[in-house]
Computed example of a mutant assay.
Amino acid sequence: MPYIDATGVKLYFEEAGKGYPIVFLHELCSDGREWDTQVRYFSRAYRCITFNARGYAPSDVPNDPSLYGWELAVDDIAAVMRSLAVEHAYLVGLSMGGYAALQFGLRYPERARAIVAAGVGAGSAPSQRSAWSREASILARAFIERGMDAMARKVAHGQTRIQLKYKDTRSWQEFQERLRRHPPLGMSNTMARCQALRPSLHDLADQFSTMRTPVLLALGDEDAPCLETNLMLKTVLPNAGLWICPNTGHAINLEEPTAFNAQLDSFLAAVERGSWRRGYPEIKAESNLRLETTFDTRAKAVIR
């Protein structure tokens, strides 16, 4: 099996295709295989790279909790790119992977040519922070105490996962089976050290406002824990676009693979043409405010 050494931890990786590199980053409850449909499509024109995060076999599953964390997840992306002689790449991440991609964009802006952050932001909204910390700690213990069979069933039947069951039962079953086979220690440490302790994306708004990297935010409209944060990101990221897919939950690339691939394809093509941009520079924000004020004044006059 092919491995990369990332600060003493071996990371399992796969790659397919030739061309400009795309690095795919998986979510908490899956691994690199969740991107199979995207790799099959995009490897026709791109060099597609997937890897399993630390704690996800056949990557190493360290016993030491200090060898997990969101900072290390960002460093691992850099280690994979360095080992594979990738100077810069497109980053495509879902949930936990999308969070790491955005943090990578802040830390290594010259190495991320464009970022797709899908289903990102759970636990980041100010109204969710206290509950997120508490629930993350409970889940970290549950992976060990209840075991992966029970936790896989619980996650797969969650309010942002059940959509996949009724759209594509086979993919839903495969998702559940992959999760069931994950090492409980790796899941527990990732939840406790990477998820529970990561900064809120809302707290990074000022930093995001200076990030010029093209960003596509992708979100299912039934992924309720992520909606507020994605609207915030769309507001503060200067070069971001937001695609909201209807009747879709968290695993947007599994639920709607054709639509997801089409959006990703269109985004990458626009980046390559140099035509991806947010709005038009000659339209100032203050003019929008004046328009809204004028509209509000006229509306009130009509109501009276």
Rank of each mutant, 00 (worst) to 15 (best):
S66E: 15
A125L: 02
L94C: 13
A125Q: 12
G123V: 10
S59H: 13
D75S: 14
A117P: 02
S95K: 07
D76A: 06
V116Y: 00
V86A: 10
Y56F: 14
M96E: 11
R129D: 01
I77N: 03
S127Q: 13
D76I: 01
A57V: 03
R47G: 01
A89R: 06
N63M: 11
L106F: 04
V120H: 06
R134A: 14
G123N: 07
S83V: 00
G121Q: 08
V116A: 03
G123D: 06
Y108K: 11
L67E: 15
R82M: 12
W132R: 12
Q103P: 00
S83F: 00
N63P: 03
F51R: 06
L102R: 03
A112N: 07
G121F: 06
M96D: 08
V92N: 11
R134Y: 14
I49P: 06
R129E: 14
R107G: 02
A85P: 00
A100P: 04
G121V: 10
P65E: 13
V61S: 08
D75F: 01
A78P: 03
S130A: 15
G93L: 02
V80G: 04
S83R: 12
A101Y: 00
N63Y: 14
R54N: 09
G55R: 09
V61C: 11
R113V: 14
S127C: 08
N63F: 14
Q103Y: 09
L91S: 03
S124L: 09
A79Y: 02
Y56P: 01
W132K: 06
Q128P: 04
S59W: 14
R107Q: 11
V86T: 10
I77S: 01
V92D: 04
A100L: 05
A117W: 02
P109D: 02
M81R: 04
M96K: 14
L67Q: 15
A53V: 05
F51E: 01
Y90N: 01
A85V: 05
R111A: 12
C48T: 12
F51S: 02
W132F: 15
G93E: 07
I77A: 05
S133K: 14
W132Y: 15
A79W: 00
V74N: 04
I115F: 05
A117I: 03
Y68S: 07
R82L: 10
S59G: 09
Y56A: 06
A79S: 15
V120P: 01
A131L: 13
W132D: 12
A53W: 13
I49K: 08
A125I: 04
A78C: 05
N52D: 15
V80T: 08
